[in-house]
């Protein structure tokens, strides 16, 4: 799920950036530092949408670095148990398959793939039904439901299922091509 929230961060800025463009430098550094990171609490920071406030800088003793407390608005993505996501399959093996929904990786184990789909090895491993009408392979898109998340301090990993109504392949580039 996506959230628009306000976060705070202490930015250390090198003295060479001081000057007319201090604020711009601060913001661009913030973007570089924060966007794409993941925290267990808030999820993945997708994008910074605005700066709320930049506090007073504090000069570090010894170094010339200055610490600014910056409050910024950002869009975060945090997967939840029970959430339905659309993801792109990245890897298929006999244990199941891996998929990605943006920054988050999801594993769907074999027993959470419908029983009528069988694993087919080969140079393009895939799961397919006996009549071959549905095929899960690399690069195809699936809709899945998250049944478990593992949230570490800097990483989120999910386990999903496609064994439910309306879940499964939604678009297969190989078949349309």
């Amino acid at each position: 799920m996506f959230f628009h929230i306000v976060l705070e961060r202490n930015m250390q800025l090198h003295p060479r950036f001081f000057g007319r463009n201090l604020r711009e430098n601060l913001v661009s550094k913030l973007m570089k530092d924060v966007e794409g990171t993941c925290s267990g609490r808030h999820g993945f920071v997708v994008a910074i949408t605005g700066i709320e406030s930049v506090g007073k800088g504090l000069i570090r003793d010894g170094t010339g670095f200055v610490t600014f407390p910056v409050k910024y608005q950002c869009v975060v993505f945090r997967p939840f148990k029970g959430e339905i996501l659309e993801a792109v399959v990245t890897l298929v093996n006999k244990m199941g398959f891996f998929a990605e929904a943006g920054p988050v990786q999801i594993f769907v184990s074999k027993h959470l793939i419908p029983d009528d789909m069988e694993f087919q090895a080969g140079d393009m491993p895939h799961y397919t039904t006996s009549d071959g009408s549905v095929k899960i392979q690399k690069e195809c898109e699936v809709r899945l439901k998250i049944i478990g998340t593992r949230v570490d301090a800097t990483e989120i990993f999910c386990v999903g299922t496609i064994k439910d109504d309306f879940l499964g392949v939604i678009n297969d580039p190989a078949s349309t091509a």
Binding site: M95, F107, S109, G148, F157, C158, V159, K163, D164
Partner: peptide
């Protein structure tokens, strides 16, 4: 219904247990 269960894996040698959430490290 085989639903909503996180698959578990075990190592036959050292009896260590894993589950599907560890999948990324195990592959």
């Amino acid at each position: 219904e085989d639903k909503n269960t996180v698959q578990e894996y075990g190592c036959p040698n050292c009896q260590r247990k894993y589950n599907a959430l560890d999948a990324l490290r195990l592959i």
